[in-house]
């Protein structure tokens, strides 16, 4: 290729190339994610490799030299799972109601309910926790004794927090497919409800799994609700009326009361655990999403 040619080619390439600030912005955005993950892994390394004061034990007694975060891991998982156990069927029931005859007949109520769900996703968790501290906790205290700060309270509120997200995911996944099947099925004499329960739901387990995984991720990551409602005792809870501490709440507490070096180490280990969980959740969701797309095309 002659020289002038190459120069012109270069000019044309430049025309269709992103300008510098756009490339810089993209680089910065990706760099931020890499830095976030990298920084937390590096900070957690000393804790992972340490022979003494390992964070992977079941006792948290900083003044006796025990910095175990396993009770918090268990607390996080337990709380997220129980919130899911309560929230998932609830969300599913709401979606089924929303998509079938009764709600379809009340068009305006249905629309209003949709907006209501959307608004629920935006309620600040700190406001939700604040209201629960002064409304739910006293109720639990009179019902079960103790302080009222327990796993049960946090579970109830957490299920309320993840509910709207799950409803939205399920609804967006199911409604189109239900509507697409409807003319044929209704002609066969099936009701929307029968169609949904016998055909659409079993064929779209993936959407349900997606909603559950997303709900689990949200429940694991939330800080304020467990911090303000679960009581924060650093031990393995043995019942729903006992106090528990989650990883997220643990991180908030340790940074608030600077205890010292080894406590910080456990903090970073806790952060890494949480980050790994949510990255796993993200990857699972991405695996599920393309499969869903293929289905709609076929």
């Amino acid at each position: 290729m002659p020289k002038s040619d190459r120069a012109a080619q270069k000019r044309q390439d430049k025309d269709s190339e992103a300008s510098l600030w756009i490339r810089l912005a993209t680089f910065l955005a990706v760099l931020a994610v890499v830095a976030l993950c990298g920084m937390i892994v590096i900070a957690a390394l000393p804790a992972l490799l340490a022979s003494s004061h390992t964070p992977f034990e079941w006792v948290w007694q900083p003044y006796q030299g025990h910095f175990g975060i396993l009770p918090m891991c268990a607390g996080s998982v337990l709380l997220a799972l129980s919130a899911l156990a309560l929230g998932f069927p609830w969300a599913l029931a709401i979606v089924i109601w929303h998509l079938t005859e009764e709600a379809q007949a009340l068009a305006s109520a249905r629309k209003g309910f949709g907006i209501f769900i959307r608004l629920l996703t935006t309620v600040p968790t700190v406001v939700l926790s604040f209201a629960a501290v002064f409304l739910l906790t006293p109720l639990l205290r009179t019902a079960f004794g103790g302080t009222g700060m327990c796993l049960l309270g946090a579970t109830l509120m957490l299920s309320l927090l993840i509910l709207p997200t799950m409803v939205l995911v399920m609804e967006s996944g199911l409604s189109q497919r239900l509507d697409a099947l409807c003319p044929h099925a209704l002609a066969l004499g099936l009701s929307r409800y029968q169609l949904l329960c016998h055909c659409v739901l079993p064929k779209n387990r993936q959407t349900l799994i997606q909603a559950a995984v997303l709900g689990f991720g949200r429940a694991c990551g939330d800080t304020l609700l467990p911090l303000m409602l679960a009581g924060n005792a650093p031990k393995l809870p043995t019942g729903f009326t006992e106090s528990a501490r989650t990883l997220s709440a643990h991180m908030a507490l340790v940074t608030a009361n600077e205890v010292g070096g080894a406590a910080y180490n456990s903090l970073f280990a806790a952060g890494l655990c949480l980050l790994c969980t949510t990255i796993a959740v993200t990857l699972v969701l991405r695996r599920l999403a393309p499969a869903k797309d293929q289905k709609t095309h076929s």
């Binding site: 990551g221 997220s248 991180m251 908030a252 949510t278």
Partner: peptide
């Protein structure tokens, strides 16, 4: 990944 990261982890960062 960034969207899924809990805000407390951002704070920890």
């Amino acid at each position: 990944i960034l969207a899924g990261t809990p805000s407390i982890v951002m704070g920890l960062f």
